[in-house]
Design a protein around this nucleic acid. Sequence first.
RNA 1: GCGCCCGUAGCUCAGCUGGAUAGAGCAUUCGCUUCCUAAGCGAGAGGUCGCAGGUUCGAAUCCUGCCGGGCGUACCA
Length: 560
Amino acid sequence: MQTFLEEIRAAIEAETGIQSPKLETPRDLAMGDVAFPCFVLAKERKAAPPKIAADLEAALNARMERVTAKATGPYLNFTIERSSFAETVLSEIAEHGMCYGTSAEGNGQKIVIDFSSPNIAKPMSVGHLRSTVIGAAIQRLHDALGYETVGINHIGDWGSQFGKLVAAVNRYGDTVDLEGDPIPALLALYVRYHEEEEGDPALVEEAREAFRELESGVDGPVRQTWKKLTKLSLEEFGKIYTRLGVSFDLIRGEAFYEPHLDETVDRVVASGVTEESEGALVVDLSSFGKIPPCLLRKTDGTTLYATRDLAAVFHRWDEFQFTRALYVVGGDQRLHFRQLKHVLERMELDWEPRVEHVDFGMMRLPEGKMSTRKGRVVFLDDVLDAAAAEAAKVIAEKNPDLADQAAIAETVGVGAVVFNDLKRERVKDIDFRLEEVLSFEGDTGPYVQYTHARLASIERKAGDVDAAPDWSVLESAAGILGQMGRFPDVLRSAARNAEPSELTTFVLSLAREVNSWAAKERVLGQEPAVTAARLALVRGARQVIGNSLALLGVGAPAEM
RNA sequence: GCGCCCGUAGCUCAGCUGGAUAGAGCAUUCGCUUCCUAAGCGAGAGGUCGCAGGUUCGAAUCCUGCCGGGCGUACCA
């Protein structure tokens, strides 16, 4: 693909003197594969764009071998010679296989990605799914481009609520099945304690005392209980991560940074940007607009969320000297990250721009924002189960002879949930609707998986074909070839923007074109040269769809 | 109140750093299976791109104001 674009650019450059001219994609494929709008030349040539286009046509054609230029109104549209286009794109895909689209341009630069980050003792809701799935996709995208990535799960395992939790376990621990089904048990304890402390100040004090002991670092019974809770929770989270195919390079809770809090505060103080306000230690941010100050220490001397995040970002910088540090955290924390970055700015740390809040829209229920405490949540496990069950039902109905149905139902069901979460632009809020997640038609993960399975099926049935392909029969597949040729650019852009939806949009559109083509053109049982060419297209398309799904963290079954 | 984010077809969304008649999916109407998986394909209908100004040869795209929704707004995370 690149080779054709270079040929076109070189010709335009030689004719007009424009350095690396901006090329577009025509609205309709029938017009051409690439377009050059001539408006930019209007002033300099003192002529109307349509005239310029017409004037340039012949000269450009004389300079290009495999591309034809045609003036259409103010545009010059370029059509790449079909056969060499098909051959070039498909052989490139065949050569690189699973690596098609990847590159080494990242050159080992370090990218730190903070994602998932659930809270201990709370069940993962469909809200946590967003960070997990978006973060994992962003990590894979960067991996594919040759960056060295560090995925960090910044577990919420610290804070005053853990005092409450430990106290609750001490008081009521015997009433629930902690070992067997820890998360709901812990949640029940937490909610009960929360309710009962309203009428009993002793409980409030007990919780406070427990957290004080926890923070003191004493390895006593409180810390033992906390460690046990952490371990039980992580084991539960691990089950979901396994289902989602997600893993982390580092699992570091907030507690990990606990020993670094004093030195963090010292570091900020030493830079001279702190001040005391209403008894608290703060960094004033009013020079950046109407932003409340960032609090480092409360009146009682203890630290806050912001302090711990500062400790984390310093630690990560010292350890990795990252090119980017991406925080895949919900949009409700935009202010927090703006404050964090402004503190770094005030400290005049030149790496501040490398810290990015990769924010995403809130997952909402029809009744409003999700809230664990208010019992207004949808548990991720339940959604994954429901999706897998729905997939199993569809398989039983449409493909009853399929082997290994349970495993494929899991792949399809989980794929539907993951894809659904990645398919729109990150920043958009989502109203969670189960029936939408369980829909397998149209713009969905299973639609793409199904396309992949059908292509794989054709490949299986074709076996080996050794005839020389007649590339000219792929005339009708120009749209597919064009899309596949763009794939490396899509990866690059999706990674740069930390926007997996660019990839879902791409693969949906590719799948749609492939299905449309496959409905018209038959692969098997044609002249050998025809079958060979079409089969090459099927292989290429299956490869690109498979590569896309892999990057998104969606399984690509060969049958379903 | 103030700040940030979002506002494109009945619903869910694409529309790349402004460019050629605004595109998909769902739902809806109609059609397609002696042939590679109908979780599919084709066709019809459906739009004052929230509103009003501005910049520009050209604005869904950039700027300003307003309206609607979401999130947040100093000792929770």
